[in-house]
Design a protein around this nucleic acid. Structure first.
Lengths: 214, 214
DNA sequence: ACCGACACGTGAACC
DNA sequence: TGGTTCACGTGTCGG
């Protein structure tokens, strides 16, 4: 039970009006009871106390509506982020901050991610992490010397890691090749798939190096 | 001025201990004053009142830390979204919901956006809206019959609209071509640039049709 | 004077 | 049980 109208409590106490066993009453019926005790007093109908009381009631309800508005937004966010319905507000807002930072990061990544082959070998795997459910989507870029067995090996890597290829680009220039892949991992191994793919591409690139040096 | 410890207020009032002009005191010094009045009473040192009072003080401070934690997250979010520092919490959370929905939408768009030419002509312009400042980034896809003057016209369109090309893909297959562009608009005309580009590409495609029909 | 947004202290509920 | 989270009513400030 909430303690409310403490000012009025003290006023009533000072004027000898006890509230007795009203402690278990619901909020609304309790308000009504106070209103009655005031309007039954000897003061005129629209007394200052009445107006103050009405203002207090308005204020209380407005504040309740405000809380409901904010909490409904919290619940909407809960349904949009990977979390259950009982994650507390602070952690939820922390997730929001993290998510918005990732989003901001993509702006620079999309401008940096060159799709023409570069002179130096390189591997880039960056998590996009779009979806709110477990499945994570990420983007991989591989740049190395072109060779005929590259594509079959790449396909075999993706199959063995159970990665679904959503999108593939290839660009060749001067004997070099760049592949850009957008792949989706199943929800069970979303996080480690990134590392596994990174290692597989790394060994693929190292094999390419050893062949060239022979 | 905050009204606090209302239970204790009533207790003190019933026991004839007035708090007089303590109304303007700060929260902490006021707590101390109450503590003193209790420990000076005839009850033993670690009385139940003392423990309850200490618990209340702990509770009060814990709640204050919780509020600070939540509000600091709110402020971090404010710096991450296009809004000033005085947007209220409800509107801020509404913006967060909107932003996360856009983010979720990109997951399906990235899978739907095919980069091979299709049989039918089509134009797609979708806003990515990555950055928190005014500049908006969006993605355009154009698929039509291939022809030599397509690329120059495309470049001219982008120049006339002051769109900066961050990334361009081209794929041709069986005499048809698909172009996928990622472009950035300056902050002044971010929104209308989308429509302007859409219309320009549309007329470009219609010109292609009329040429073919001749 | 009113209305809306906020911070505060407090009771309750959940581990 | 203490610790932590939440909802609530209330005081306060600004438009």
């Amino acid at each position: 039970m909430q303690l409310e109208n403490s000012e009025l409590y003290r006023f009533l106490a000072l004027n000898g009006v006890g509230h007795g066993s009203s402690y278990g009453f619901s909020s609304s019926s309790y308000d009504f009871q106070i209103m009655q005790s005031f309007s039954n007093s000897s003061i005129s109908e629209t007394s200052p106390q009445d107006r103050a009381l009405a203002a207090l009631k308005n204020h209380k309800e407005a504040e309740r509506r405000r809380r409901e508005r904010i909490n409904s937004h919290f619940n909407r966010i809960r349904s949009l982020l990977p979390c259950n319905s009982k994650t507390d507000k602070a952690s939820l807002l922390a997730k929001v901050v993290q998510r918005l930072r990732e989003l901001k990061q993509q702006a620079v990544e999309i401008t940096e991610m060159e799709n023409l082959p570069s002179e130096t070998d390189e591997i880039r795997v960056l998590s996009c992490d779009y979806s709110s459910d477990g499945t994570s989507i990420f983007k991989a870029s591989l740049c190395c010397e072109d060779r005929s067995d590259l594509l079959p090996e790449l396909i075999q890597i993706l199959n063995s890691l159970h990665l679904k290829t959503l999108r593939a680009e290839m660009a060749t220039l001067g004997g070099r090749i760049r592949n850009v892949l957008v792949v989706a991992a199943d929800k069970d191994h979303g996080i480690e798939s990134v590392r596994l793919l990174q290692n597989a591409l790394k060994s693929l690139l190292e094999r390419s190096d050893s062949k060239r040096s022979v």
